[in-house]
Amino acid sequence: MLLVRAIIRPEKRDEVLYELSSAGFHAATVVDVVGRGKQKGIKVGGIVYDEIPKIMIMMAVRDEDKNDVISVILRVAKTGPSGSFGDGKVFITPIEEAYTVSTGKKGL
């Protein structure tokens, strides 16, 4: 099992969640976050904005579904034909165990 953490633009939230659901990956957790990337924020006039609001989508997926989930996120969260700065990042971490509280059962 893997934990996919995708940091994307806030305006892409609904679209990404909808496309993930259509692709069969319904379960997700959404967190409001702020952050900056490699470009050290945005400079507008003399002011640097380096706490840019973003959305973090967390999903637990099976190992074999990893590439499908990532391709959906990469396709939908991209802005413009070749993408642009600030479109976000996707991080993958291993999950050793998962439990469902309602049933108390192990596994996704």
Binding site: A60, P94, A98, Y99, T100, V101, S102
Partner: peptide, 9 residues
């Protein structure tokens, strides 16, 4: 709807 628990290294 009671939630999930994940254990990560």
């Amino acid at each position: 709807g009671d939630g999930k628990i994940f254990v990560l290294p």
